[in-house]
Amino acid sequence: MAGPPVAVVTGAARGLGAAVAEALRANGRRVAGLDLRTCDGVDFSVEVDVTDAAAVAGAVARVERELGPVDELVTAAGIYEMAPIEEIDDARWERMLGVNLSGTATVCAAVLPGMVARGRGGVVTISSDLGVGGSEGDAHYAASKGAIVGLTRALATEVAGSGVSVNSVAPGAADTPMLEESSPWRAAEFLGTLPVQRLVRPDEIAAAALFLLEVGTAVSGQVVSPNAGATI
């Protein structure tokens, strides 16, 4: 008799990733957290840099030895900063795309072949509303998150018919530690433009990821945007 599904969540040490890990565990998954920090509240924690493809492959192999084959993946690891385009030097550009885009691709590459071989699985990437609509001062972040949407749709096409789905959650501004207290996204002027008058909660984003994992392969290559009504 098969045991509970095994899920990998990147960036699970805090913020959105921790919320996703909590939601998946509450809904019967055994969860492995991959992060630079130790992840609490998961079944297995691996400290790994998601930009290191070889290290990620090794981390996934450790998860599968400890918990079993990976059935689900949510790529919540990411970074954020604002900067005008003239201040985004090579180092800042490469760090943003390295963590957000390459860090998503490395984990997908490590888990998708096994899912396809077993004929089942679900992947949810975390992109951003800014990757779809853009915003002033967010060029490198928006570029990295927009590229995740393209990656998601390409992978969904690549694995179509295999029993594996690949979708993305593109949240609006979320109430996580990534968003500093001084951020303009926390300002009353911005919140007042939202129909619900507040930031998106991490548990709401986690619920969207859970839905995409549970809805099955009839939904693949899609983007769901929990964004407090910022884009309707």
Rank of each mutant, 00 (worst) to 15 (best):
L36Y: 05
V48H: 09
R30F: 05
L24D: 00
E47V: 14
L16Y: 01
V31W: 00
V74R: 05
G33W: 00
A26N: 13
P69I: 00
R37H: 15
A59S: 04
G15Q: 02
T38G: 15
I88H: 08
L16F: 04
T75W: 13
A53Q: 12
L34I: 03
V20C: 09
A77F: 02
V63E: 05
E72M: 11
E22K: 15
P84D: 03
Y80Q: 12
D43A: 06
A26Q: 12
E64H: 05
A54T: 13
P84S: 07
A83R: 08
A12S: 08
D49G: 12
R37T: 13
E66D: 09
D89V: 05
F44P: 10
S45C: 07
I88K: 09
G68L: 04
G15P: 04
G58L: 13
G15M: 07
V20G: 05
E66C: 10
R14C: 07
A55V: 06
V50F: 03
I79Q: 10
D43V: 03
F44Q: 11
C39A: 10
A18H: 03
L73Q: 01
V20H: 07
D90H: 14
E86T: 09
D52P: 04
A53T: 07
M82W: 14
R14I: 08
A77Q: 11
A76Y: 02
G17C: 03
A21L: 03
R37Y: 14
T38D: 14
D40C: 14
V56G: 07
V50N: 10
T51K: 10
L73F: 02
G58R: 09
N27Q: 11
G41N: 06
A21G: 02
L36W: 03
E66Y: 07
V70A: 09
A54V: 13
G33R: 04
V56W: 01
E87L: 14
A57T: 08
A91Q: 10
G28C: 02
V60F: 05
V20E: 01
E47C: 15
D90C: 15
A59V: 06
A55Q: 10
A21Q: 00
P84F: 02
R92V: 04
A53M: 13
C39P: 04
V31A: 04
P84W: 05
A57H: 12
V50L: 09
R29K: 14
V74K: 04
A19Q: 02
S45R: 10
A76P: 07
L16V: 02
E72F: 11
V60L: 06
A21H: 00
L16S: 03
A59W: 02
M82G: 15
T51I: 08
D89H: 09
G78N: 07
L34A: 06
A61Y: 12
L34D: 02
E72W: 10
